[in-house]
Design a protein around this nucleic acid. Structure first.
Length: 436
DNA sequence: TCTGGGGTCCTAGGACCC
DNA sequence: TCTGGGGTCCTAGGACCC
């Protein structure tokens, strides 16, 4: 059997762990640039605050309800995510980290009559050791385990744990949910299913295989088979190497200037390269894209463009990638547009040990590699951007403002970020004990 | 004033190969 | 008049996920 475990209201729960004033209060966490709502505490959900709602549309409402609003603090969430994974590893070595707040675990070693008790022990331990409440679903396939987890949370009597251990309980579960509650079934997919006369998860599980394959492709077929208990989506205990690494941002203020875009692109490229080197990869190509504001009123000229620059040899050198990114930017940039967003994508990724050298390349890659390793080490110790290429600006925790004597227009807002309680010595939570 | 970011997978179509 | 069959690789775009 497989286990799916995920945190409840993850970002909001992380914030609550370290700030007692948030307890029992509605909390929402905003996306980068304080754009939209990306997490809500249970109290906030009870107020019918929508997910993905632009903040400016509901700012008044949130004030009226006295909702605590926070910018997202990924340093904190990443660390809490690692803590949860460490707890799960106590239960099995066969662990797949699926997202920042979700894992799949193999419970193949747990006898059927112990599944419920072991799942409850997992939930209790995670809650006690990290302060984060989690839900646990157990079933034969990933799709069913996700479904079980949904019921673990949705049905109060389940108390956060649901085991679908036999055909009867699976059948019962399939009758309790909507098609769009299934993993991989969006609104659009639901419409296609309806047009085939499939209106419920149970009908999908029992639909004719040939019809499903022909009309819904392999994607639909996999979902249907998984619902019948056949594993089509394997556990990935060893995380496969990334195929792309991306760093992009919406700007706090739109800009028309090439120089602003160049600075942004060089900063994003630097950041993407840190991620790349952390995984011991090198990039063979860089894509740069720029966007105008898609929410601008009608009549404002829209522009989206992307260009790729290939490298003769895959590289992990920020200087080389940033230079390639600027070359790509020159080709996408058009004067006269007001730019809202830009991004850098690294692809054709290969392991550094497997880079194919170029016959005519006489540079000293060993030296460049050592330089980058040193830069990364310094930045880990003294903070992101302590050492950087001159074309970039410090990235991350610093507030928007002046850099090298002039305003950085493009950096996003993050005015309400909580502290890095678990990763910075000077931001540790402080407890005051009442004296007797 | 204000509307996220980072991924994967599939499919179709084109270029090219033998 | 007629105009193969089988394949790879790449890219763009769309759907979907968290």
């Amino acid at each position: 059997m497989l286990v799916h475990v995920d945190a409840n209201n993850f970002y909001a729960s992380c914030e609550k762990v370290f700030d007692p004033t948030l307890r029992d209060r509605p909390v929402v966490v905003l996306s980068n640039n304080d754009g939209v709502v990306v997490a809500r505490s249970s109290e906030a959900k009870a107020l019918n605050i929508d997910m993905a709602r632009p903040y400016f549309q509901i700012a008044d409402l949130l004030r009226r309800y006295d909702v605590r609003v926070l910018s997202s603090n990924y340093t904190l969430y990443d660390d809490m995510s690692n803590r949860l994974a460490a707890v799960y590893r106590r239960f099995t070595d066969a662990l797949e980290i699926y997202s920042i707040d979700e894992c799949f675990l193999s419970f193949d070693h747990v006898p059927p009559d112990r599944l419920d008790a072991e799942a409850r022990r997992l939930r209790t331990t995670a809650g006690r050791w990290t302060g984060i409440p989690v839900g646990v679903g157990v079933a034969a396939t990933k799709t069913l385990a996700k479904l079980a987890n949904r019921l673990a949370k949705k049905v109060p009597a389940n108390d956060g744990v649901c085991v679908l251990g036999d055909a009867a309980s699976v059948r019962d579960a399939l009758g309790r949910i909507e098609l769009t509650d299934l993993w991989g079934v969006s609104r659009g997919f639901q419409c296609r299913l309806r047009s085939l006369g499939i209106a419920t998860p149970l009908e999908l599980a029992e639909a004719d295989s040939h019809l499903v394959r022909r009309r819904l492709g392999v994607v639909g077929q996999r979902i249907a088979l998984e619902l019948r208990g056949q594993r089509c989506i394997p556990m990935e205990v060893i995380a496969p190497d990334k195929q792309t690494v991306c760093c992009s941002r919406s700007f706090g203020t739109e800009t028309r200037r090439f120089d602003d875009l160049r600075q942004a692109v060089c900063t994003f490229a630097s950041q993407a390269m840190v991620k790349l080197r952390r995984q011991d990869l090198a990039a063979g190509a860089v894509t740069v894209f720029v966007d105008t504001n898609i929410h601008a009123p009608p009549g404002v000229k829209q522009y989206h463009n992307a260009r790729t620059t290939g490298l003769p040899t895959a590289s992990c050198d920020t200087r080389e990638i940033a230079a390639a990114a600027v070359r790509a930017l020159r080709r996408v940039y058009r004067p006269g547009y007001s730019y809202k967003k830009a991004g850098v994508l690294l692809h054709r990724l290969v392991k550094r040990s497997g880079v194919q050298p170029n016959l005519f390349d006489r540079r000293d890659h060993g030296r460049a590699g050592r330089l980058m390793a040193t830069v990364d080490r310094i930045n880990r110790r003294f903070g992101r951007g302590a050492v950087r290429i001159a074309a970039a600006v410090p990235f991350g925790m610093a507030p928007s403002g002046l850099t090298a004597g002039r305003t950085v227009h493009w950096r996003g807002r993050c005015d309400r970020r909580s502290r890095c309680y678990t990763t910075r010595w000077d931001e540790l939570p402080i407890c005051y004990a009442k004296s007797a």
